[in-house]
Design a protein around this nucleic acid. Sequence first.
DNA 1: AATGAATGAGCCTTCATTCAT
DNA 2: GATGAATGAAGGCTCATTCAT
Lengths: 231, 231, 231, 231
Amino acid sequence: MKTPREDTARTRGKLLAAAGEVFAEKGFRDTTIAEISMRAGANIAAVNYHFGSKEILYSEAWRHAFAKSLQAHPPDGGVAADAPPEQRLMGQIMALLRRISDKDNRAFWFMHREIANPTGLLTEVVREEIMPLRQRTESVVRELLGLCVNKREARFCEMGIVSQCINPMVVRSRLNQGGKEYDGPFRIDDIEAYARHVVSFSLAGIAAVRAVAEARRVKRKTKTAGKGGRP
Amino acid sequence: MKTPREDTARTRGKLLAAAGEVFAEKGFRDTTIAEISMRAGANIAAVNYHFGSKEILYSEAWRHAFAKSLQAHPPDGGVAADAPPEQRLMGQIMALLRRISDKDNRAFWFMHREIANPTGLLTEVVREEIMPLRQRTESVVRELLGLCVNKREARFCEMGIVSQCINPMVVRSRLNQGGKEYDGPFRIDDIEAYARHVVSFSLAGIAAVRAVAEARRVKRKTKTAGKGGRP
Amino acid sequence: MKTPREDTARTRGKLLAAAGEVFAEKGFRDTTIAEISMRAGANIAAVNYHFGSKEILYSEAWRHAFAKSLQAHPPDGGVAADAPPEQRLMGQIMALLRRISDKDNRAFWFMHREIANPTGLLTEVVREEIMPLRQRTESVVRELLGLCVNKREARFCEMGIVSQCINPMVVRSRLNQGGKEYDGPFRIDDIEAYARHVVSFSLAGIAAVRAVAEARRVKRKTKTAGKGGRP
Amino acid sequence: MKTPREDTARTRGKLLAAAGEVFAEKGFRDTTIAEISMRAGANIAAVNYHFGSKEILYSEAWRHAFAKSLQAHPPDGGVAADAPPEQRLMGQIMALLRRISDKDNRAFWFMHREIANPTGLLTEVVREEIMPLRQRTESVVRELLGLCVNKREARFCEMGIVSQCINPMVVRSRLNQGGKEYDGPFRIDDIEAYARHVVSFSLAGIAAVRAVAEARRVKRKTKTAGKGGRP
DNA sequence: AATGAATGAGCCTTCATTCAT
DNA sequence: GATGAATGAAGGCTCATTCAT
């Protein structure tokens, strides 16, 4: 025996799920609430009734999808918090790639569309939900970079690493869509192989940045020491 | 003394420029030909008169913007063709970052929107115009990688490098828009500094990939030699 | 107490009636859905909401009008099925003329416009709905023609009879429109008088055709008999 | 060496011919000046330049086509003016059927469309040009009807005969269009056979009408004679 | 609480006509 | 005289939202 409350909750859930699918497929503008309602098996007035407007549904659907995505693929990638930073980086990269490539988790595609085609509806959501993830990555990267590297370079590294994950996945997905697989230069056959590549490529990059920074620090110290040391 | 031909060319040009601006700002769907016409100082029927449809204008505007973009920032970045590959890579990265960040060149934003929100109108255009650029980059990367690295890893490297350029620029641009500068973790203050970072980071990454591949090759040879050499 | 279903049915009905009027007056192309909606007391979006498109409304309105027309003027003209064929022909002709001249039944004008200015939207409808009527007429005509008349001449007769009904009515209607009655050579004052004329004119025509055919048959038989009979 | 006058005349002629084709194919509303101009190899402004408006071109094109049609198929059908009325009727019917079925003469289709879908642009033209033809037919019919038949019945006969020619041709043409021949009940295989059918069918009809009228006359006279005859 | 009918603003496109050369 | 560019009015259709039940 279902209470009206439960009915309401179920309809809301169906609408959120349907909205997630359609928004991810077509973006905000090309999505019609008629299609969302239909896929959710609900009335065409249901969206405005339950959420107030298409715009509100949009951000709610994103939060919903993002939470589900994080639950399915924890950001540490299953690596223990006290593992060496190299392994933790690998874990985070794998988690990110899995979140993006998981066909059941559409949050990433929302985000991507939103960045390309800003509605301005997700800016707050981004800061609240995405930032912690990036800071978690930045923190591992800083560990690997050591103390000599300044903040800007650390940010550069973090951005570069995340970008290596995001961009190729986007391109791959787009070019492979439409049924026919596209076997051109953009193709990534194996998520795990690509993850290993990004890790080893980036660890080398990080090491180089670290080396330069440390050399600079030593040089400065020597200079300072020489200046101050000689009477 | 204007001939009708010249008139047409001028109006077409104005429409292309206006279309470039508006499409880049708002994407295909949210752009109205009314706004394009208004910005071009033309009648609302001008778009259909000169181009036939909004869709055709879209792809024509992209070609126009892309050609202008390439002309303003040659893909070699001003580096001679016989310079060492490290410098040529730097040149290409600089050229790419400049093309993306140049506020007068909107082609990149078209492309980015198109990938995020495919209209299907630019697929051919991409393959014809973008591929050569990526192949040019891949070719420098392969030079730096040496002969031991297989094709897939070369592609991974090329994709990673290009991604490091594209993605942060997108995010930076989006978050900085709306008048207020956003001084958060995504910000890139200095294009040139970021270019140098990407080059040194990526050269180290490439060297690492190369080293691994060469070690693998040596190992195999030794194994083979051992197998065949000792009875 | 109106249910939504009843509301829909009423609005649909009003739209069908209004569409019937306007399409019959102006034809498909010159009819605007704005006018139909206005006459039906509905919003301009109502047509697309209830029917999907102007084209669908067109053929639905025709079916609606045709059904109403048949109901108002049964095709046998009130003559019993076992009456002599002359009377049944009279009944059908009267029914046809009444259907055409009835100002409340617009189906005929649709048809006429459609034939003159084909939209291709009614072809199926014609075959499904008009054919049975013509076959009914042809069947009476064949009865009157006897067995000697071949199929082609029977068809000629049927076509000629129906044409005598349709064409003058069309011309009469057109020339009388615009407020001023046109009392020229095309005018038919009295539907019933014209029906009687068509019947007697055509019965004589049919008899002549029948006589010729029977004479031909007798001649052939005699010839054959003569040929075969004499050794 | 062409004078400007000759150029103008030629362009006008091409426009008239092209307009004749397109108007006959598509009707007034669905015909665009652009298509007429294109088919005539003229500028899009040529129609308004040479004729003033689409409407004027429409009626001019009709006059042009009608004159050409009459020239190609003289209304007497090649039968001498002193031939017996039966033969003259046959001549006129043949001429009418030929005019209608001649694929190079589009005037009839104009007319038909105009009647079905009145633009009001041809009403005067009709009265001026069509009436004489119908009066010519009516005059033969009256000859065959004799003096006892009243004016209304003569008109009925004439209308019926002409209708037998017009209507089946229209239907035949429409149903056979679209490339595929339609071998249904409407088909007329042989213009000449149909003409013979109409003549013999109608002569019988005329004879019947005449007989009835004469019987009525005799009856009245007898009655009158009887009335007046008895003292 | 929830539905389905109805709305009206807005968009792309068409096309006869006009304007400047 | 003749052209081709340009115009503006109008039409069909879409869709998020509101209204009445």
